[in-house]
């Protein structure tokens, strides 16, 4: 038995079922409420413990935080739970212990959609654009929850990523890898978020494009928007980070400023490769 009473018995018949674009996450259910919880950093996932579905814990009392005007970076070896920690902060997996606070409120029980409304912008690692829609439509969909005029924000995004303005009428799926990531970040910025979360924004792009993306991210952070990101390219990421978290097997292994971590012998030896 693969998955409960409503599994598909291995049926992949394209004439009756459409797996494309289906939801795969198991997020916090809608209907929870926030509670006031003053103090602490702007966004913090504190002592988070949890895993997917009924599976084993992936995170073990893991803490991640970012404050105004900062770039915080989560790094670590493969399978360390970096992306899981990020998803936990965003409510894409239910915590068994710990809490998430944003701007003086406990938002642990909020669904991801509700967190977007609270001002969190999230860029998933994969499937982070609407491939069949134009660049402009992607940005419009990013701003779906807004009822005011979005043209100003769209201009700001186009200023940040000029190439998108030229390709605004093109289907996002036809763009190159780096351009797609720009669309993805731009989409998240359209809500005018109070904090931006990026899950491996440079995965699968060339080094040149990666540098450019980092530049753009720094530019975003300079506007005062806190940025929390997971990165595979630890050196470059720590170099621009105000705060770094090294995760190992779902636990905080090292925490410090980006520079301090880069200078730390143990971090270098065990993780950055010398």
């Amino acid at each position: 038995m693969s998955g409960g009473p409503y599994d598909d018995r291995g049926n992949h018949d394209a004439s009756i079922t459409n797996p494309c674009g289906m939801a795969e996450d198991d997020p916090v259910h809608a209907g929870g409420h926030e509670h006031p919880a003053p103090g602490g950093p702007f966004l913090i996932g504190e002592a988070m413990t949890g895993g997917y579905g009924r599976g084993a814990d992936i995170l073990h009392s893991c803490t991640i935080a970012v404050d105004r005007g900062e770039i915080a970076v989560i790094v670590g070896p493969n399978g360390a739970g970096k992306s899981t920690a990020m998803k936990a902060v965003f409510g894409m997996l239910s915590l068994r212990e710990g809490m998430v606070r944003l701007d003086g409120e406990d938002i642990t029980e909020l669904s991801p959609q509700a967190r977007v409304r609270k001002g969190m912008g999230f860029v998933p690692q994969t499937h982070n654009i609407f491939t069949s829609m134009t660049v402009e439509e992607n940005l419009e969909m990013g701003a779906f929850i807004r009822r005011d005029d979005i043209s100003g924000t769209m201009e700001q995004v186009f200023d940040l990523f000029p190439i998108l303005k030229d390709k605004r009428r093109q289907a996002a799926g036809e763009l190159s890898g780096g351009q797609r990531q720009q669309v993805a970040v731009g989409r998240a910025l359209m809500t005018k978020p109070k904090v931006l979360m990026l899950d491996e924004p440079t995965a699968g792009v060339s080094p040149i494009v990666m540098d450019e993306l980092f530049d753009r991210i720094i530019e975003v952070a300079r506007t005062g928007l806190p940025v929390l990101m997971v990165e595979q390219n630890a050196r470059q990421a720590l170099a621009i980070a105000d705060k770094g978290y090294v995760l190992v097997q779902g636990r905080n292994a090292h925490t410090g400023t980006g520079k301090a971590l880069l200078a730390d012998d143990e971090v270098r030896r065990s993780f950055l490769g010398g």
Binding site: N11, H12, D13, A14, S15, I16
Partner: peptide
């Protein structure tokens, strides 16, 4: 390439 048994 995909299974189209149902319609067939």
């Amino acid at each position: 390439r995909s299974d189209y048994l149902a319609i067939a």
